[in-house]
């Protein structure tokens, strides 16, 4: 199909769908409405299980199955990207060019910021059931924090501190831990992914039952997964060249 035909076709479809969508949102409850029936139940359930961050309570307790599957999607994507970006016949490993070495000032700042970033990441993971954030956000911070090493020194340093199969293992093991905690709930008879641990007292570090544990499992899984993902992309961009390329 020519470009014009394609755009016209999309235009026609949009001309039908836009007014339909308009009619639909005209029938939706007004923005800012006070009626949220699911919210009323979810907040009550979170308070019953002593989880101060209701969003965490939903993600890890009330609708924990969604999050287990979400971690599984992450695992599938990481393994998928690893397969898709694997070195294939005709690929060669390049030596790094000189411009991959960082500036001294950047090194200094990055080294100074690195421990703080890692601490923040850990803090966000551990307090996920209390304050905004949790395993996912903290895991991403940890993974990106590690990549400050690349800014701080050379790619080789990062490569040495990054035995990838460790990270892949930690991702696999922590996803399995999430599933295992779910099966543990089944074994006690309370139900799959049930919050079987003591709930503790509201707003304490040790409260929320399984929520902080699952938060940590997700934190490890996400940190490992993102490190592996970024590693595949960094390798492709910096290291792997094809024999068919020119000087590259």
């Amino acid at each position: 199909m020519s470009r014009t035909v394609r755009l016209v076709m999309f235009g026609v479809a949009a001309a039908v769908l836009a007014p339909l969508f308009g009619l639909a949102i005209a029938g939706a409850p007004p923005f800012g409405t006070a009626s949220h029936p699911y919210r009323d139940l979810a907040v009550a359930a979170a308070l019953r299980n002593a989880t101060a961050n209701v969003v965490s309570s939903i993600n890890f307790d009330q609708r924990g199955l969604d999050t287990l599957v979400e971690e599984t999607i992450l695992l599938a994507s990481v393994v998928g990207a690893t397969i898709v970006l694997r070195a294939s016949t005709g690929d060669v490993r390049r030596e790094l060019a000189g411009d991959d070495r960082a500036l001294a000032a950047v090194t200094l700042v990055s080294v100074a910021v690195l421990p703080g970033t890692l601490l923040i990441g850990l803090d966000v993971v551990v307090h996920g059931h209390l304050t905004p954030g949790g395993g996912f956000q903290g895991g991403v911070v940890l993974a990106t924090g590690l990549h400050l090493l690349y800014l701080a020194s050379r790619y080789e340093t990062l490569e040495r501190l990054r035995p990838l199969h460790w990270y892949r293992w930690s991702e696999g093991l922590s996803t399995a831990a999430f599933g295992g905690i779910g099966v543990g709930g089944l074994a006690t008879g309370a139900g799959f992914l049930a919050n079987v641990l003591p709930h503790g007292s509201f707003a304490d570090l040790l409260s929320g039952g399984t929520v902080p544990l699952l938060n940590i499992a997700v934190g490890v899984a996400v940190a490992g997964g993102v490190v592996v993902l970024l590693a595949q992309f960094l390798d492709q961009a910096l290291r792997i060249a094809s024999e068919r390329d020119g000087k590259g």
Partner: peptide, 25 residues
């Protein structure tokens, strides 16, 4: 705030970084 934190971590850092690396490659 939970969603905003994720968005900052993912939407402003990780995904654009991956796009940049893909474009560079």
């Amino acid at each position: 705030p939970d969603v905003a934190l994720s968005q900052i971590a993912v939407g402003t850092a990780v995904v654009p970084l991956m796009v940049m690396l893909a474009v560079r490659k």
